[in-house]
C-alpha cells in the first residue's frame, strides 16, 4: 500500500514536471520557477526537484551554528510505515498565482518583498498550505526560525498537496534545529532520510544532531555520508557541502581525541575553501593542542587576516 502511494506521488510529481501535461495540474497555476531544471532528470524528478531546493536552502539558511540530538539514515521500521500508511491523503486545493511571483523573489533572495506577497496571500487565504510553506521559507531565510517552524507546521497540518510538500520534513528539521527543538529536528531528519538517504544535506544535519547528542560514532557516520554524497553535488553546492562537512567532522574527531585525524579533516576543508575563517581557527586550535606552536601561530594569523569570524 505504501509503495503504491509512493509510486502514485512520484508519478504526480513527474506529471507536474512535464511541460506537456501542465494542464493536468492547472489548479496549481503558480508553476515552480525552477521547473525547467526538473526536466533534466525525469527519471528521478522527485530527487532532482529536491536537489535544487536543498541547494536553495543552503543558500538561505547558511551553515550551521549550534545544535542538539541523531540519525544515520536507517531504513524505516514497521511502526513508521504504519504511521505513513494511516496518513490521510493530501487534499488538492487550487493554487494562487501570486505565489509564483513570491517564490521567484524568494529564490532571488528578495526576502522582504516575497514576505509581503506571502502575507498578502495568507490574509486572503489563511488556509492555503503552500503559502504557509513559502512564508516559512522566507522567514527561514531571515533566520526567524521559530516563526518559520510555525508556518511549516501549519502547512503540514493543512494536509494539502503542493509542489514542495515532500520537502516539509527537511525544512521542519532545519528550522526546529535552529529554534532549539532537538527532538522535532531529530524526528524530521530521520523521516527525511528515509525518503532520501543519498542527499548530503540531510546527512549533514543528522551529523550535527548526533554531535549535539555526543553520539560521536553516529555523527561520524552521518558526516562521512554527507561527504560521500556531497561529492556528487554540482558546484558551488559541492564545495560548500564538503567544506562544512569536513569542518564538523573535524569537530567530532577532535572531541573523540583523534586530533591528527581532526587536523587532516580541517585541512581538507581549507583546501576546498582557503578563505573560510572558521577552518583556520580550528586548525590553529588543533595545532596548539598537538604542540605545533609555530604552525598554530601561522594558522591564527591566517584566521585573523580573514576577519577572525563574523562575530
Amino acid at each position: 500500500m505504501l509503495a503504491f502511494k509512493k509510486v502514485l506521488y512520484q508519478y504526480s510529481i513527474l506529471i507536474r514536471s512535464s511541460v506537456g501535461l501542465r494542464t493536468v495540474c492547472a489548479f496549481s497555476s503558480d508553476l515552480d520557477p525552477i521547473m525547467p531544471l526538473q526536466t533534466q532528470a525525469l527519471r528521478k524528478p522527485f530527487n532532482c526537484f529536491k536537489c535544487v531546493f536543498y541547494a536553495c536552502v543552503i543558500v538561505l539558511i547558511g551553515c550551521d551554528r549550534g545544535s542538539e540530538s541523531t540519525s544515520t539514515g536507517q531504513p524505516g521500521n514497521a511502526a513508521t510505515e504504519l504511521a505513513e500508511d494511516l496518513t490521510p491523503p493530501l487534499s488538492e486545493v487550487p493554487g494562487d498565482p501570486r505565489l509564483k511571483v513570491g517564490k521567484e523573489l524568494l529564490m532571488a533572495g528578495r526576502l522582504d518583498e516575497s514576505l509581503i506577497i506571502f502575507e498578502t496571500v495568507l490574509r486572503d487565504r489563511p488556509e492555503l498550505a503552500r503559502a504557509h510553506f513559502l512564508k516559512g521559507m522566507t522567514l527561514h531565510g531571515r533566520k526567524s526560525h521559530a516563526l518559520a517552524l510555525q508556518h511549516y507546521l501549519k502547512s503540514e497540518a493543512l494536509n494539502q498537496d503542493f509542489a514542495e510538500h515532500e520537502l516539509l520534513d527537511y525544512y521542519v528539521a532545519w528550522s526546529a534545529f535552529y529554534a532549539g527543538e532537538a527532538e522535532l529536528a531529530q524526528d524530521r531528519v530521520e523521516r527525511c532520510l528515509l525518503d532520501n538517504p543519498e542527499r548530503a544535506d540531510p546527512n549533514f544535519l543528522a551529523g550535527l544532531l548526533a554531535f549535539n547528542d555526543d553520539r560521536l560514532e553516529d555523527a561520524e557516520v552521518s558526516l562521512r555520508l554527507a561527504l560521500q554524497y556531497g561529492r556528487l553535488e554540482p558546484e558551488p553546492a559541492r564545495s560548500r557541502e564538503l567544506r562544512r562537512a569536513w569542518i564538523r567532522l573535524s569537530d567530532v574527531l577532535a572531541r573523540a581525541e583523534r586530533r591528527e585525524e581532526a587536523l587532516e579533516a580541517v585541512t581538507n576543508a581549507i583546501e576546498i575553501q582557503p578563505d573560510f575563517a572558521e577552518s583556520w581557527f580550528r586548525k590553529a586550535s588543533l595545532l596548539s593542542r598537538l604542540g605545533r606552536e609555530s604552525e598554530a601561530q601561522e594558522a591564527l594569523v591566517r584566521w585573523q587576516a580573514l576577519g577572525g569570524g563574523p562575530g
Binding site: 549550534g66 542538539e68 529554534a179 532549539g180 549535539n212 572531541r255 586550535s285
Partner: peptide, 22 residues
C-alpha cells in the same frame, strides 16, 4: 579544561547547546 592550559568548547558534549538557543 584539557589539562594543558587549553580549553575546548564542549558545549555539545554536555547537552548544553541546542537547548539554550532560545
Amino acid at each position: 579544561s584539557s589539562g594543558s592550559g587549553f580549553f575546548d568548547d564542549r558545549t555539545r558534549q554536555f547537552g548544553l547547546a541546542l537547548v539554550s538557543r532560545p
